[in-house]
Design a protein around this nucleic acid. Structure first.
Length: 249
DNA sequence: AATCTCTTCAACCGCCTCCGG
DNA sequence: TCCGGAGGCGGTTGAAGAGAT
C-alpha cells in the first residue's frame, strides 16, 4: 500500500493543511503530485493532496445545489457516457467529478430506480433507464473512419458496398488508406456513440423532436473534420469547447 | 431529551493507462 | 519490449449532520 511505510495522515483535512497545500500549488503549480507532500510540508500521500486540491481547494469550484440545467445535462451526458464522471464534470464548469458522482449516487440514481418502475417521469428530469450506454474509447479520430461511420456504414447495411464489409461479430472493415494494412475497424458501438453525440433533442410546440446525424449539414461536418482534430482521442474531442458548441448551439 | 435511522459527501482504495528509462 | 512509477479514474466507505421516533 502506497505510503504505508511512512504512516501518512488520513482522514479529514485541517485548515492548516489546506493552507499549506494551497501555498504549495500557488508557488509550484499543479502537477508533480509525488513532490507535493515534501514541498508543502504535509504528512499526506500524493493522491490525498491531489484529491483535496481538485475537489475542494482549486479556485472556481462551484459549491451548493445543482441548478436544473446542470441536472438535465448530467442526465443527458450520463445516458450518453455512463459513469464517465470526469468527462461529465468537464462539461459542467466549476463542478468536480466527485461532486457529479456523489450527486448522481445520492439524487439521480435513486430517481432512476424509482422512475424505471413507474410510467410518468417529470419531463425536465427525463431518465432513460433502458438506454444502452456507449462509452467512448481512447480511439483516434481519422477522417476516413468518421465518414464511414456517418455515411457509408448505413448504406452498407442495406446493400453491397465494395469499400465496406460487415463481419459476423459486428465489426465493419473499411478501406482505409491511412491505415498501414489498408483497413480500419469500426464497430457498432463506436458508430452509435458518434450518432448519439450528434443527436439533439429539441422541444417545439411542446413536442420532443430528435435531430439525427442525417440532419446535420456539411458545414458542421467540416468543423468536426477539421484537420486539427485528426489524431485526437474521442475523450479529447468530447471536451473540445468548439466541438461542444457545434452539438449544443 | 435521548436514541435510532437515514442522507450526504469528503476521502480512501485499488485498478488502469501512460510514459520514460 | 519490458518494467516501474506517476497520474488519473470510478467504486466504495464511513464520519457527521439531519430528521424521525
Amino acid at each position: 500500500m502506497e505510503g504505508s511505510y511512512l504512516r501518512v495522515r488520513k482522514g479529514a483535512w485541517t485548515e492548516e493543511e489546506d493552507l499549506l497545500l494551497k501555498k504549495c500549488i500557488e508557488k509550484y503549480g499543479e502537477g508533480k503530485w509525488h513532490q507535493v507532500p515534501a514541498r508543502a510540508g504535509l504528512n499526506r500521500c500524493r493522491k490525498s493532496c491531489r484529491l483535496r486540491w481538485l475537489n475542494y481547494l482549486k479556485p472556481n469550484i462551484k459549491r451548493g445545489h445543482f441548478a436544473a440545467d446542470e441536472v438535465d445535462l448530467i442526465i443527458r451526458l450520463h445516458n450518453l457516457l455512463g459513469n464517465r464522471w470526469s468527462l461529465i464534470a468537464g462539461r459542467l464548469p466549476g463542478r468536480t467529478a466527485n461532486d457529479v458522482k456523489n450527486y448522481w449516487n445520492t439524487h439521480l440514481l435513486k430517481k432512476n430506480i424509482d422512475t424505471s418502475s413507474k410510467t410518468s417521469n417529470p419531463k425536465s428530469h427525463k431518465l432513460k433507464p433502458n438506454t444502452k450506454v456507449i462509452k467512448p474509447r481512447p480511439q483516434i479520430l481519422s477522417k476516413r473512419s468518421f465518414l464511414v461511420n456517418l455515411d457509408e456504414y448505413n448504406n452498407n447495411n442495406n446493400n453491397n458496398n465494395n469499400d465496406c464489409a460487415e463481419t459476423s461479430n459486428n465489426v465493419v472493415l473499411a478501406d482505409c488508406s491511412d491505415n498501414h494494412d489498408g483497413y480500419c475497424f469500426l464497430d457498432h458501438d463506436e458508430m452509435m456513440w458518434w450518432e448519439n453525440m450528434m443527436m439533439n433533442e429539441k422541444e417545439v410546440d411542446g413536442h420532443q423532436l430528435q435531430c439525427s446525424a442525417n440532419d446535420i449539414d456539411q458545414s458542421v461536418l467540416d468543423q468536426i473534420m477539421n484537420e486539427d482534430n485528426y489524431g485526437k482521442t474521442m475523450d479529447e474531442l468530447f471536451l473540445d469547447e468548439e466541438l461542444w458548441n457545434v452539438f449544443n448551439p
